[in-house]
Design a protein around this nucleic acid. Structure first.
Length: 143
DNA sequence: CGCTTTTGACCCGCGC
DNA sequence: GCGCGGGTCAAAAGCG
């Protein structure tokens, strides 16, 4: 059970509300997009219900980047895509690890990306070497 | 050859 | 009880 202290606690409703106000904030020019967009992490949201009755941890990340595939060091396999909604579904390819990741583009500001993690990785993150493998999907400045 | 991505339809739950 | 919406699996193809 991982309980990050530096993480801010938010409710799902507040999460959306917050994401909305964040968009209104004077955002600086995306100058760190080169690093993958992860550095542009705006805020972290944690929704685990009022009581920890559910072991399913839900964490929401709002990122200001044009890249939705945020590489957090884990392997993710796309298993669904919504047509009527800019929403994608990913799953941890690891065996025994059923962690889900939901990626959704902002409604008003497509520049924003909302990544929601569901579940907890029961295994440690793969080695950096393996990470490079998925790096192939990352956009390169030079094709 | 295997992994992954891509894309459509189906199932269950909620609202009326 | 039915209809719609959200979430998920399943089949096929491309690259290293």
């Amino acid at each position: 059970m991982n309980q990050p202290d530096d993480m801010m606690l938010f409710e799902v409703d507040d999460f959306l509300a917050f994401a909305d106000q964040v968009a209104e904030e004077p955002e600086p020019p995306a100058q760190e997009l080169d690093c993958g967009g992860i550095e542009n992490k705006k805020q972290v949201f944690r929704s685990s219900s009022s009581s920890m009755k559910n072991t399913l941890a839900k964490v929401g990340f709002i990122t200001k980047s044009e890249i939705e595939l945020l590489d957090d060091g884990y392997r993710w396999r796309k298993y669904g895509k919504k047509k009527v909604k800019n929403r994608n579904y990913y799953r941890c390819s690891s065996i025994g690890c059923n962690v889900k990741k939901r990626v959704e583009r902002h409604q008003d500001d497509s520049s924003f990306v909302i990544t929601t993690y569901e579940g907890v990785h029961n295994h440690h993150a793969p080695q950096p070497a393996a990470v490079q493998h998925q790096a192939r999907h990352l956009p390169n400045s030079d094709g």
